[in-house]
Nucleic acid binder design. Structure first.
Lengths: 143, 143
DNA sequence: TATTGTTATACTCTATAACTATA
DNA sequence: TATAGTTATAGAGTATAACAATA
């Protein structure tokens, strides 16, 4: 398929979309990185620190510090692993679950407001395109 | 239009897309913030520091430091404004222009590889949806 | 010896407050 | 007095290297 200008217009559009999400995401006082961790934990349950670092593509010390900061804020909790005494299980607290829910609602609302400005055809394209791209990323990443 | 689940599936897809772009964008050793500045300067020409800070939604000191770091790396250049001696004009260097071009090509290639995995209908949807969303953001931001 | 996690250190990116120089 | 920019300081988020504890 011809993407026109080597897809550079699409890259520019995507960059703008990224900036938009970042601005919306910041509302609620949670960074992209913290948000990503909290979302993963509330979606997949408690996990090992090493596993979280690998999943986020971040170093182990970086994840240690992120968990420490978020534990200080009462959003996650460390539990010692029962079977391997070296290990640590990180889980989300009730406050963390609450925050995830509130942020998800905020973001969905912002995206809906954006989509509401589009023509019906464009709206349909968005509903098709976004999940399709997400699936493609998943397929490419696991390959 | 019904977005299904209050658009939360779309938000999740968008988050994944954001993560993907961030990873691709990092290749080349330039952060999102630095990349944004370099792109703006090479797109719109030399600008005042205050103007750049406002355009990126960032504080004036943050932009001062960003420009200082990038000047140290030879990507941008400060010039004293002729008409207002308080002012500073920030412009991109030849090395900066080169880097912008290389990164744009890399990103376009990554996005094309992703799109190539999609069905023709989905590909068409992406080409429609991304620019449409970018336009909506522009319209909303300037409103 | 290998793995899990932490600590030490350093860099980028961000903010607010205080300051200098020009208008 | 107001505006443009910088400096001072602090915090989040990141990395690599060195370390402790467990396997």
């Amino acid at each position: 398929m011809d993407l026109g200008g080597s897809g550079e217009e699409l890259v520019a559009a995507l960059a703008q979309l990224v900036r938009f999400v970042r601005q919306v995401s910041t509302a609620g006082g949670l960074s992209t990185a913290a948000s990503s961790l909290l979302n993963r934990l509330s979606r997949e349950g408690p996990q090992r620190l090493t596993e979280l670092a690998r999943a986020d593509g971040v170093s182990q010390p970086a994840m240690t510090q992120m968990v420490t900061r978020m534990e200080r804020e009462g959003l996650v909790r460390r539990t010692s692993s029962t079977d391997d005494r070296r290990g640590v299980l990180v889980g989300v607290t009730d406050a963390g679950v609450d925050l995830v829910g509130r942020r998800r609602a905020e973001q969905a609302e912002a995206l809906q407001a954006l989509i509401a400005r589009l023509d019906p055809d464009e709206q349909k394209a968005v509903v098709t395109a976004l999940p399709a791209l997400a699936r493609a990323i998943e397929a490419q990443t696991s390959a």
